[in-house]
Design a protein around this nucleic acid. Structure first.
Lengths: 114, 114
DNA sequence: TCATTATATTTAAGTTTCTTATATATTGCA
DNA sequence: TGCAATATATAAGAAACTTAAATATAATGA
């Protein structure tokens, strides 16, 4: 598990990207997929996730729809067109960030400037 | 310039890594080198930097020494042995983080599990 | 000579973003 | 019957910044 300080700022981008790749998802599933995709390195807690989802909804980047599954209400989240273009920008920024970190970590190697 | 949210959690690691690579540095120089190394993508503000330096000093990860240059006091920071081993751990964690982000961004590619 | 930019450090107040803890409720397995 | 997994939500508090302001010297250019 990676220190939470490091992860903090990227959670919103991660949520958007997952919704972009996998379409409709409910909150619980999002936490599971993040853990799966990152081999347990990143764990999204509910206390972090739901406020993020609610905020993204209020920003019109995603919409919700309810579904009953096994007598339980599930709330599905999916991207709006606005959310879809937000993902593109966020991912681009995340790639820049990854590159910037690599320039720090491996200052010798002349890495891509993309 | 990358969104500050993204960068937040990695500033301490960046400072430690720079001191590890370049030895004695004063605060102002650290901000310059970060900007240089990251091609302006990451800017360390003084309001962020000095509290980080002071905290690392109180944690005995670095020590200070003063020097007069052009009638001005410069405060140089350098790693203690404790700081040096902290760098190694932090960099390892940062690499894990970079990989985890790449698993999110490029889920198709089977990237290293290092 | 005067103004501006660069150099250099510091700290206080405020915001954001999470962490931690708690609450609630159903299903399935042992 | 009890525990683990499934599923969502929110409140209180901590941490890490951002922004802004204060202070001071040197160098550059108009």
């Amino acid at each position: 598990m990676i220190s939470t300080d490091l992860i903090k700022g990227s959670l919103k981008t991660i949520v958007l990207k997952l919704l972009s790749d996998e379409g409709r998802m409910h909150g619980y599933l999002i936490t599971q997929r993040v853990e799966e995709l990152t081999h347990g390195k990143i764990k999204l807690t509910y206390g972090a996730l739901y406020p993020i989802l609610h905020k993204l909804e209020s920003e019109k980047k995603l919409v919700t729809s309810q579904e009953i599954y096994n007598n339980r209400v599930r709330i599905y989240y999916s991207l709006t067109p606005e959310g879809t273009s937000a993902v593109r920008e966020k991912i681009e920024e995340l790639n820049e960030f990854i590159n910037a970190l690599r320039w720090i970590v491996e200052p010798g190697k002349n890495l891509s400037h993309a």
